[in-house]
Amino acid sequence: MILHIPHASTKIRDTDKFVEAVKDEAIEELTDWYTDQLFSYPHSERVIPQFSRVFCDVERFRNNEDEPMSIKGMGVVYTKGIDGKDLLKQPLSPVDEEIIKSSYYDKHHREFAIKLNRSLTLFPEVFIVDCHSFPATPLPYEDSSERPDFCLGTDDFHTPVEVVNDIKSYLEGLGFSVLINTPFGGTIVPLQHLHKNENVKSIMIEVNRKLYLVAPYTGVKSDDFEKVEAVITGILEIISEYEISKY
């Protein structure tokens, strides 16, 4: 199992225009707070970039032409904030953007692919879990107003239906609401294997921040944090059992 945890960091890297100009609000609202703590499982690999998505979002397609969120100024390198207004006082040049992509985005995806390919030499299948959280109320740029407790993101080629059903039943049995691909859809797979290798499985797990943070849900853990952590461990156990059944 590989846990891909792309949005847990609040760090802005060494581009002065970012350090000086990024709005605190963007960091607070767009960080997947503590997902690096909520998602942990024995014998799993973890891939966690040490920089904020506001600086470089490794979940986007590299080219703006391929990335739907680039229209909203939220491609690999964000130019707009959650309010749709310019994020930076001075726009980055194409050269600056390419430096960020090559130094951070490309490096992350190389490391991700290396871990996946190494795991594929050891196991018949490898399951990627794309680990996220989302704000309790929709942000202005979002297309869906739905706010379940958990959202499961799937891909028709890479996500086993039985795993989705088992996780959904498990969560609903605990009293949580669950939606599939709403308000967020899809899940990550390295391009080398995307829709090509059926031995790479993937699912996205999105947890509503109201379940484990104190309002306004921007960084302070609630008393339920450990409970939610245990629930997520239960999800990962379901995935692990699926993996074991393939050996």
Rank of each mutant, 00 (worst) to 15 (best):
Y141C: 00
E125R: 14
K80S: 13
S202W: 02
K246T: 11
K227V: 11
I180P: 02
E125M: 15
L191V: 07
T187I: 07
S144T: 05
I2S: 01
K201T: 03
I239A: 08
E206N: 05
F225I: 01
I244G: 01
P68L: 12
P49D: 07
R13S: 09
I239K: 01
F225C: 03
H132S: 02
S9K: 00
M69I: 04
L236K: 00
E146V: 10
S93W: 13
S102A: 13
I114F: 14
N117M: 15
Q90M: 14
L236C: 03
K107G: 02
N199I: 00
R118G: 13
T35P: 08
V76F: 07
T233S: 13
G185D: 13
Y247I: 06
I238K: 04
V54R: 00
T79D: 11
L87C: 09
P94G: 12
L30T: 11
E206S: 05
E226T: 10
T121I: 14
N64S: 07
L174C: 14
S44L: 08
E29D: 11
D143S: 07
V76C: 08
L3H: 06
S102F: 10
A26Y: 10
P94N: 11
E28Q: 11
G185M: 07
E45C: 09
I100T: 07
G73F: 11
L3T: 04
Y141D: 00
G186Y: 02
F123D: 14
V228D: 04
T15F: 15
V95F: 15
I235S: 00
S245P: 01
R147G: 07
I99K: 11
S144K: 03
I12E: 14
T31H: 08
K196W: 07
G219V: 04
I205Y: 01
G186P: 02
T10Q: 13
D36L: 05
N63Q: 03
Y212A: 06
L92Q: 14
Q50I: 12
Y247F: 13
T182E: 13
G186R: 02
A136E: 08
L213P: 03
L139P: 01
F18I: 03
R60W: 08
S144L: 08
H109F: 06
F157I: 04
L213Q: 09
P140T: 00
L88K: 05
P68A: 10
D106W: 15
V189A: 04
S9A: 11
A8C: 14
P94S: 10
H7G: 04
S144M: 05
F225L: 01
A8R: 00
P42I: 11
D86R: 10
T79S: 15
K89W: 12
Y78C: 05
V129M: 00
E237D: 10
I2T: 02
S40F: 10
S169W: 14
L116Q: 01
D83H: 09
H193R: 01
D16N: 09
V95A: 14
L213N: 02
V228E: 03
D166M: 07
T121L: 15
N197W: 09
